[in-house]
Simulated assay, not measured.
Amino acid sequence: MLEALVAAATFPFRPLRPIHAIFLAFPLPLFLAALVSDFAYWSTFQVQWTNFSSWLIAAGLVGGGFALICALIGLLSVQVAPDRKRIAYLIVLSVMWVLGFIDAFVHAKDAHATMPEDLSLSALVRLLALISCWIGYSGFHAGEAAWRWYLLIAALAIALSGCDEDPRTAAVRPES
């Protein structure tokens, strides 16, 4: 029984692949810096702040594009049916990239013409970058992994107690 619990508890928990995690690390700080520079432009009206934002958004789109490609490959390479978390991650990452691309076009306009929509669009893209990083770095199949860790801890408790029976079924039987 102990061997079955240990075997059930040792399945691979699938976090992001390392290259995917590296690419996912780019959009969040770059889009955040773009939002800060948009806010600086809104406060000072110095045109150079919109140039900073344009470059930061372009760099965030490059990193986000590679993260999107990695997410799509990860979704297609799953041997079982993809779960909702992977699909939601891909959708949030796609929407973040598309809105970031629209934000890049907004920044391509004249600096004085960008301000009302620029700040709100940058804030929305930054929020989506935060959500995609949260979903991506939290890993996939977390519920199953938590259940398997519970089984592993139960197996270790059984092994350390020296008892050959499952403590959950022993508590159900009335004592004689």
Rank of each mutant, 00 (worst) to 15 (best):
V80P: 02
V80Q: 09
V80D: 11
A81N: 06
A81C: 00
P82R: 04
D83Y: 01
R84V: 07
R84I: 08
R84T: 10
K85H: 14
A88Y: 12
A88C: 10
A88M: 14
Y89K: 05
Y89A: 11
L90P: 06
L90T: 11
L90C: 11
I91S: 09
I91K: 03
I91D: 04
V92Y: 07
V92L: 10
L93S: 13
V95E: 06
M96R: 07
W97I: 04
V98M: 12
V98H: 03
G100M: 05
G100W: 04
G100T: 06
G100D: 05
F101Q: 01
F101K: 00
F101V: 01
I102P: 03
V106K: 07
H107D: 10
K109I: 10
K109W: 14
D110M: 08
A113W: 07
A113V: 10
T114K: 12
M115T: 15
M115K: 13
M115Y: 11
E117Q: 12
E117P: 05
D118L: 13
S120V: 15
S120R: 13
S120C: 05
L121D: 03
S122C: 06
L124E: 05
L124S: 12
V125L: 04
V125H: 03
V125R: 02
I131Y: 02
S132W: 02
S132A: 15
C133S: 15
W134P: 00
W134N: 02
I135A: 04
Y137E: 06
S138E: 08
S138G: 14
S138N: 09
S138H: 07
G139D: 04
G139Y: 02
G139M: 04
F140E: 12
H141N: 12
A142K: 10
G143H: 11
G143F: 09
E144F: 08
E144G: 15
A145N: 13
A145T: 08
A145G: 02
A145L: 03
A146G: 01
R148H: 07
R148N: 12
W149M: 08
Y150V: 09
Y150S: 14
Y150D: 09
L152V: 00
L152M: 08
A154P: 00
A154T: 13
L156D: 11
A157V: 10
I158N: 04
A159R: 14
L160P: 01
G162F: 06
G162D: 05
C163T: 10
C163L: 05
D164Q: 08
D164P: 07
D164H: 09
E165I: 01
E165H: 06
E165L: 03
D166M: 08
D166G: 01
D166I: 01
P167L: 01
T169Y: 00
T169H: 01
T169K: 00
A170G: 00
A170T: 06
A171M: 11
V172M: 11
V172L: 14
V172H: 06
R173V: 07
R173T: 08
P174H: 09
P174Q: 08
P174D: 06
E175K: 10
E175N: 07
